Computed example of a mutant assay.
Amino acid sequence: MTSSDLELDTERLSTYLGRHIEGFAGPLSYQKFSGGQSNPTYLLKAGGSKYVLRRKPPGDLLPSAHAVDREYRVLKALHGTAVPVAKPYVLCEDTEVIGSMFYVMSFQEGRIFWNPALPELDVADHHPVFDEMIRVLAALHSVDTGAVGLSDFGKPGNYFQRQYSRWTKQYRAAETSNLPEMEQLMGWLSRNLPDGDGSVSLIHGDFRIDNFIFASDAPQITAVLDWELSTLGHPMADLGYFCVCLRLPPTGLIRGLQGLDRAALNIPSEAEMIERYCSLRDLPEIENWTFYLAFSFFRMAAIAQGVYSRALAGNASNENAMAFKGLVAPLAQMALDEIAAATH
């Protein structure tokens, strides 16, 4: 995939959006956001208004990946609920318009924090930001999926068994070399899959700090972004992933808090965030936490392998995609270290 593959036909796109978005008027210009490893994302400007377009990348893709239609469906379901999202305008399944399926949503003004250490904020303002993220996560997992029309948004059965099978297949499809760390981790996960406990919620699938837009002047989330991996599943998948992201090193493609003094930064500890989440949802103490963490590391590693595989095939949407090769084994090793620590 070359940069020209990601260019938009503004004339054709403007004509289409003029037919489907009330008040849309050209001339249309666009700029591709630098982020977005999976689905290329663009800022559209037209008639004094701003919009955001997310599309499937062109080229050969892994099965079930890049599900922008699922993103659009969940945005429509959640818009106007306690979970803040951008306003969805239109889903276009006609690949003749720009070369792949896409949708358009509102552009949300505000702040995105890329570094969970929050260096741009006063230390006193750190804790409220994390409290807000946990509040929104609890609100998401409390959504009545039947009431918002998402009762069929996921498959029945044991979520983690299903997800382990899915991500193992995705990893194998994208595998470029044998990694002993991944083999050992997948073996442990297969032997320790928890029995289904009946917990089912709408889950985001990529719940981390840079997928939120905060208000410009308050620790308030105005939109949760990037719903491609959302589904009906076990809420601990989101909470575990959120905590795993914060365990990552403070430098790299996804920044974490590893080695930093959370107390000095006025950032709640992992235990405090779990306690806050459980309090908001009136849940007892969490069992199988080691598994949830290990699984989240595994899934993150499998996703990284997929990004690297797309880069080799020329279908990656981000210039940093080749660097994802170096993430896979270290992520698996972090999971193995957590498992070892929990068993001693």
Rank of each mutant, 00 (worst) to 15 (best):
E7N: 12
D9A: 11
S14V: 03
G18Y: 08
A25R: 15
G26R: 10
Y30R: 00
Q31T: 13
Q31G: 08
G35H: 11
G36T: 07
L43W: 04
K50N: 14
Y51T: 09
Y51G: 10
Y51R: 01
D60P: 03
P63R: 13
H66Y: 01
A67H: 07
L78F: 08
G80P: 09
T81M: 03
T95H: 09
S100M: 05
S100Q: 11
F102S: 12
Y103S: 09
S106Y: 00
N115V: 06
P116Y: 14
A117G: 13
E120G: 10
L121W: 11
L121Y: 10
A124S: 15
H127W: 14
M133V: 06
V136P: 03
L140F: 09
S142E: 14
V143H: 05
G146E: 14
L150D: 06
G154S: 11
P156M: 13
Q161N: 07
R166H: 12
Q170S: 07
R172A: 14
S177F: 01
N178D: 04
L179Q: 04
W188V: 15
D195C: 08
D195F: 03
G196V: 02
S201W: 07
R208Y: 06
F212G: 05
F212C: 06
S216W: 10
A218M: 12
P219S: 05
P219D: 07
D226Q: 02
W227R: 00
M236R: 07
Y241W: 00
C243G: 09
L248P: 03
P250L: 08
L257T: 10
R262V: 11
A263V: 15
I267R: 00
E272N: 04
I274E: 05
S279P: 01
L280V: 08
L283F: 02
E285G: 06
W289K: 05
F295N: 10
S296T: 06
R299H: 07
R299S: 06
A304F: 14
Y308P: 13
Y308N: 09
R310C: 04
A313R: 13
E319I: 06
M322A: 11
L327G: 00
L327Y: 07
Q333K: 15
Q333S: 15
A340D: 15
A342K: 02
